[in-house]
Amino acid sequence: MTGERETIQPPHFVISSEGEILGEDTPENQELVRRVVACVNACDGITTEELENGIIEDMRRVIAQTAPLLQERSQMTDLLQREIRAEITARQKKS
């Protein structure tokens, strides 16, 4: 991936405040409306300035860095819990 963004051709429709298509009702336009609505909902609480300044890319980068660490921590926690249970079971059998 070169970092280039796909150019989106201008649609030939308007989205009403209720999310309805006013204009050309094509499968492509319906999918674009669906995407716009999903983006608006996902960005609830984020200011336009934050969006323009790249907050989404920043969040994606942080998640990409953090997710593997959290997954490793979870796996280590699971392993430790199994070892503790095995030790408790072994001690109970000795009693």
Rank of each mutant, 00 (worst) to 15 (best):
F13I: 12
L22I: 15
E50Y: 02
N41H: 05
D44W: 02
V14A: 07
F13Q: 03
E24S: 15
D58T: 14
M59E: 03
R73D: 06
E52F: 03
P27A: 06
I21S: 09
L22H: 08
D44R: 10
L70N: 04
H12N: 14
R34M: 07
S17N: 12
H12S: 13
A67D: 05
N53H: 09
T26D: 03
H12V: 08
V36I: 15
G54M: 09
V33C: 14
A67R: 14
R73F: 10
A42V: 05
G19T: 10
R73A: 14
T47K: 08
V33Y: 00
T47G: 13
D58Q: 13
V62G: 00
L32I: 13
R34G: 11
A64Y: 03
S16A: 10
Q71W: 02
P27M: 07
E31Q: 14
L69H: 08
Q30D: 09
D44E: 15
M59C: 08
S17M: 08
E31T: 04
Q71R: 14
G23S: 09
T26S: 15
P68W: 01
G45Y: 04
C43A: 15
L69C: 03
E31V: 01
P11Q: 05
G54S: 08
I56E: 05
E31D: 10
I21Q: 08
L51T: 04
E57V: 12
H12C: 09
Q30L: 11
T48E: 10
G54D: 02
I21A: 07
R60M: 13
T26F: 01
L51N: 03
N29A: 14
R34F: 02
A64S: 13
A38T: 08
C43M: 14
E52I: 08
I63D: 06
I46N: 02
R60N: 07
E31H: 04
M59K: 08
S74W: 01
A64T: 11
T48Q: 04
V36Q: 06
R61V: 12
L51G: 08
P27R: 06
G19H: 07
I55F: 02
Q65V: 05
G45L: 09
R34H: 10
P27C: 05
N29I: 04
I15M: 15
I15H: 00
E52H: 01
V36Y: 11
A38D: 14
I55H: 01
R35D: 08
E24P: 03
E24N: 12
E28Q: 13
G45S: 10
E20V: 10
P68D: 00
C39L: 15
L70D: 00
E28M: 07
A67L: 12
V40C: 06
F13W: 03
A67Y: 07
E31A: 15
V40P: 00
N29Q: 11
D44M: 04
Q30W: 02
P27T: 07
I63K: 12
E49C: 05
T47W: 05
Q30H: 11
E20G: 01
I21D: 06
D44P: 00
V33I: 03
A42D: 08
A42Q: 07
A64E: 12
G54W: 02
D58Y: 06
F13V: 13
G23Y: 01
